[in-house]
Computed example of a mutant assay.
Amino acid sequence: MKQVHRKMGIMDLFRQIESGSDGRLHGKLTWIIAGLGNPGLEYEHTRHNAGFLTMEQLAKNCGVRLSQMKFQADCTEAMVGEVRCLLMKPATYMNRSGDAIGAAADFYHIPPEQVLVIYDDISLAPGKLRIRRKGSAGGHNGIKSIIAQLGTEEFPRIRVGVGTMPDPRYDLADWVLSKFTEEEQAALQPALEHAADAANLIVRGDINQAMNQYNS
């Protein structure tokens, strides 16, 4: 049977845009998802950059790249599931992460409870996650900076395990800036994928499901 092709009418275009099948962004930007780390080649694949690694996984899942420099961060807008989000990797270095995230939250009028932060946790083994609705900085300088800028501890976070120090006498800065072993990298990759999936659940309002499914 011969196929009949027809031109797309204006109503067809409206339906495509409404359904989201045209590949555009839809709705108001309502969430910020920020992964923490340090910029620069020397810090790539270090423990302290677990947040950056997660953001790269999430961006890959969304079919986008963090290629815009805005708010002192590598950014892009993306549909995470059906939610329009700003994805961020602050380029301010870890201790000033709040400068970038606070500026973006102010610009888009995003409340703290809709700012999801993803970062490294040295109390968890590689491959483990911990999701919380809020909490203290727990000694993490990036989170201290964000709390100072947002004026509250009440923002959700995903903590990605990067491994405990092999000896308590080990220098903390040296440890978090060290690179993962091959064995640790193998354990970490599924955690990055799970963290990206958890972010999807959280922005659509299913943080309880994310905690039940992915908390170690």
Rank of each mutant, 00 (worst) to 15 (best):
T54N: 02
V4R: 15
V117G: 07
N49S: 03
G40P: 02
F71D: 03
D22W: 08
H109K: 13
R96S: 07
V115E: 11
N49Q: 06
M94W: 00
T92K: 01
H5D: 11
G51Y: 10
S19W: 06
Q114P: 05
R84T: 04
M11W: 11
A125I: 01
F52L: 00
G35Y: 07
L29Y: 00
L41F: 09
G63S: 14
T30I: 03
I110S: 08
E44A: 12
A78P: 11
L87P: 08
S123F: 02
T30F: 01
P39I: 14
N61P: 00
D121L: 09
V80Y: 13
A59F: 03
N95K: 05
W31S: 08
C75N: 01
V83N: 01
A100F: 09
I122W: 08
K28I: 13
E113K: 10
M79Q: 15
D121Q: 11
G9T: 15
F14V: 12
Y93I: 05
H26L: 12
G81W: 05
S19D: 12
T54M: 13
T46G: 00
A104E: 01
T92F: 01
C75E: 03
R15M: 07
P112Q: 06
E42L: 06
L41A: 15
M79C: 08
S123C: 05
T92V: 07
Y119E: 02
G63M: 15
H5P: 02
V80G: 05
R6S: 09
K7T: 12
K28Q: 15
Y108E: 00
M88Q: 06
Y119V: 00
